[in-house]
Nucleic acid binder design. Sequence first.
DNA 1: GACAATTTGGATAAGCAATGTCCGCATTGA
DNA 2: TCAATGCGGACATTGCTTATCCAAATTGTC
Lengths: 168, 168
Amino acid sequence: MRYSQSTELAIDSLLYMAARPEASDFSVEQVAAAQEVSASYLAKVFQQLVKAGVLRSHRGSKGGYALGRPLSLITLRDIAVVFEGSSPLYECDGYARTCSLGPKCLVKATFDEAERKMHEVLAKVSLQDVVAQAGQEAAWTAAHGCAPLPPPVAVTQADSVGQGGATS
Amino acid sequence: MRYSQSTELAIDSLLYMAARPEASDFSVEQVAAAQEVSASYLAKVFQQLVKAGVLRSHRGSKGGYALGRPLSLITLRDIAVVFEGSSPLYECDGYARTCSLGPKCLVKATFDEAERKMHEVLAKVSLQDVVAQAGQEAAWTAAHGCAPLPPPVAVTQADSVGQGGATS
DNA sequence: GACAATTTGGATAAGCAATGTCCGCATTGA
DNA sequence: TCAATGCGGACATTGCTTATCCAAATTGTC
């Protein structure tokens, strides 16, 4: 079980737009280039975000995409739901077996509760929060002079060398 | 995103065994028949549960499977982890894009926290809890002589005949 | 009105993990 | 030894995610 890559791509793309409030409309091409993804695929992702109201679209020449609401009203949960769906994570009817014990219900209730708690956490963090912390960390980085970004070398293979690096 | 059917099958099968404490060893055939699943597939599920210590296996003639520990020490989380894996739901590296904003970290931290809360809920409920509630509900049903289903509005036709079958 | 830039939606392929089956081997009690 | 059972590997099937392409619709600009 994993969050889809579409979810991650959507978050990254939205943050890209959020970090550039001076621009009003972003073309798929532009964002796709920034995220190093094909425009074809990003277009599909954006279409879903438009349907969900997270993005607005302007068609035609000079068209493009813009955020559909203020940053503070777009939570991580909003984005996740778009790509992961809203049906329960635990279905209780994967097979047509009779629920012989009857109250497997406690099982179902527990999984539902777990999912609810998860969404609760995601709903508490908006894109604005993320951008705000981004600013803070950027300031910290500048003050301490260590860059968290490796140089954009096109790593083809033999990557993920220092996998023990996450010591935090 | 969904919990796999293996997880659900595992839970149902374990509950089947838990509800029959008089029996010591269950063959795959027996449980598979009860769950209306092929023995081939259930065998694979059981093998994973053995590896995780949730089940014990006895090979050879008269062999079979038994619970690996007391019911109270088998939580829903234990079972879920077997089939869903323990790697984070949000990976942060689905694509090789540079994390241009730097602290997408807040995103990652939030998803990790959400997942942690989810596991917290699942870890609080053991198979013993489930069986216990099963007993309670069975008693309630027996006392009231009806399934806990609110009667719909003046339905006189004989629909869904055998729906009270959960009284095993 | 023509043209170019752009999103939209459908069709469809490619990839991959979950699901499901089969078979030979290993183990164990009778 | 024999039969019953679990073990492990190989493989087929299925469905969802990822990804691409193309024609159509929309809209600003000349």
